[in-house]
């Protein structure tokens, strides 16, 4: 099953205009500097925002067709989303958070054991670390048995070691899940590591030349997926873009 999205929406400083497709079992990484409209793309796919124009389909099902006036509400799209900075339910324990939309509890338990958070099952999400919360959020999303998984900067708030561990875990999961996964990040190394396909987005447009330019710079060329021990590279991306424009 594949997810296809053609989206156009006027934002404050530019018009978002992208076209994406992601097959089952694959990860599509949308990468770009902050404020480029990446998160809006995810929110539109999730149905939390509406596009001005566009078509979104998931397999045979039409989620959005602006011409026909179709708009399937979020709760009927059977997707899951890992929010940036987590959106866990503060009134529920970690286990109940994971079970929130789970088909069965044994799946929730299995996932929690796999992500190493089973020992936290009775704790409230407010009293666990950022990495544990993010694992909880991923378990919660996967336990709901989604047909599409969306991840918005899932690892950006974490320390490098936790980040690396979680990336590995998600990469492992992808083959088993066999669903389209759309992943949004400002970190190009993360995109290179996780993405089967990478869509660079700048100011609301797909901008392959920018990625190419980035890859060609010495800094960028040195960024191998398995050598991710340095800090954030967002600033670098930004500078490269400016050079390109010049």
């Amino acid at each position: 099953m594949a997810l296809r999205a053609e989206i156009r929406k006027k934002l404050n400083h530019f018009t978002l205009d992208v076209s994406l497709a992601c097959a089952g079992g694959k990860i599509l990484s949308v990468v770009g500097p902050s404020g480029s409209g990446k998160t809006t793309i995810l929110r539109i796919i999730a149905g939390l925002d509406a596009p001005d124009e566009g078509i979104i389909t998931c397999g045979e099902r039409v989620w959005v067709n602006s011409r026909a006036g179709t708009f399937l509400p979020t709760q009927k799209r059977r997707l899951a989303m890992v929010f940036q900075d987590f959106a866990l339910f503060p009134h529920l324990s970690v286990f109940k958070n994971v079970c929130f939309a789970a088909r069965d509890r044994s799946l929730a338990e299995e996932l929690m054991k796999r992500f190493g958070i089973w020992h936290l099952k009775d704790t409230r999400p407010q009293s666990i670390s950022g990495g544990e919360r993010q694992r909880t959020a991923i378990c919660q999303a996967l336990a709901s048995g989604p047909e599409v998984l969306l991840m918005d900067e899932p690892f950006s708030a974490l320390d490098p070691i936790t980040r690396r561990k979680l990336r590995m875990a998600v990469a492992e999961m992808k083959g088993e899940l066999d669903i389209p996964i759309i992943h949004v990040t400002h970190d190009i190394r993360e995109a290179l590591f996780l993405g089967d396909e990478i869509v660079p987005v700048v100011s609301g447009k797909v901008f392959h030349k920018w990625l190419l330019q980035f890859m060609l710079t010495t800094r960028g060329a040195g960024m191998c997926p398995d050598r991710e021990d340095q800090g954030d590279v967002e600033l670098e991306i930004y500078d490269t873009r400016k050079e390109w424009k010049r």
């Binding site: 149905g47 509400p73 979020t74 959106a87 866990l88 503060p90 929130f100 939309a101 709901s144």
Partner: peptide, 27 residues
């Protein structure tokens, strides 16, 4: 209440009516 936890509830398949009782009320 953080908007995102409500959005998360919708994403996880809850209608606004159910989300009100399962998320808004307990918080």
């Amino acid at each position: 209440i953080d908007r995102r936890i409500l959005e998360n509830a919708h994403v996880l398949g809850l209608s606004p009516f159910k989300a009100f009782f399962r998320v808004v009320v307990p918080n």
